[in-house]
């Protein structure tokens, strides 16, 4: 796993992808920090994360769409899958590399929290719970993006499928509350209230496990293509 993880993280920062993702995310966050927090003279750092979650929905594919699609298109998957490494370790390597980039972006948001300390004492616990929730959300997002990338050799399709899935599940609860557990972004909503919502944490984690497993299964099946 470490070999793939190391190389993938390096690749994110050798190409513009890592910088574009982090840069775009932080640029948008700065805007939300101004609009949702400073504008109201508020100390509630967590308020900007509702908008940040929306942005994450749209920029996650920047990181995930190439993960397996590009390997397949260029043919480098042959190097990966003929090496003694198992598919499971390759999938985990790539998954954690993408997650690492998201984590870096999220840690940068602590700067905004630090800025708030100039004006008063924001509620640190709530802020940390929000960041935890946001990390869980991005973990689920990355797992689905990775899955979408494993089913096609076209990065654009992988990206569109990812965003499409997120948007559909976002609005499905409007039709019926039956779909409530599918909507990742509404699951996140409890965290900025300062709640460590067990039900939501379990949902995020099981969603992630499901799509990591599905990715492994898809790639295993590729070996016995009919």
């Amino acid at each position: 796993m470490w070999a793939v993880l190391k190389k993938e993280i390096k690749s994110y920062f050798l190409s513009p992808i890592g910088y574009v993702f982090i840069g775009l995310f932080l640029a948008m966050c700065s805007l939300f920090f101004y609009l949702d927090v400073l504008n109201y003279g508020s100390l509630q750092f967590e308020n900007m994360f509702y908008s940040a979650a929306t942005i994450l929905t749209f920029i996650t594919p920047i990181l995930t769409m190439r993960m397996f699609a590009e390997e397949r298109k260029v043919g480098t998957e042959q190097l990966l899958y003929t090496s003694p490494r198992s598919i499971t370790s390759i999938v985990f390597g790539k998954f954690f590399a993408a997650l690492f980039v998201v984590l870096i972006a999220e840690l940068f948001t602590l700067i905004y929290l630090a800025i708030l300390f100039l004006f008063g004492t924001p509620h640190v616990q709530t802020a940390l719970v929000t960041i935890l929730g946001f990390f869980l959300l991005s973990m689920a997002y990355v797992s689905f993006g990775m899955f979408a990338s494993s089913i096609t050799e076209n990065q654009i399709i992988a990206g569109v499928v990812t965003i499409g899935f997120f948007i559909i599940t976002w609005f499905l609860p409007n039709f019926s509350t039956v779909f409530q557990p599918l909507s990742l972004i509404t699951m996140f909503d409890k965290f900025p209230l300062g709640l460590i919502a067990i039900e939501e944490i379990v949902s995020f984690v099981s969603f992630t496990v499901l799509f990591v497993l599905l990715t492994i299964i898809v790639l295993q099946r590729k070996k016995s293509v009919k």
């Binding site: 190389k7 390096k10 690749s11 050798l14 190409s15 043919g75 480098t76 190097l79 003929t82």
Partner: peptide, 11 residues
Amino acid sequence: MPEGVPLYNDL
């Protein structure tokens, strides 16, 4: 060495 020499171009 696969056909068409697939390589990681950014390395």
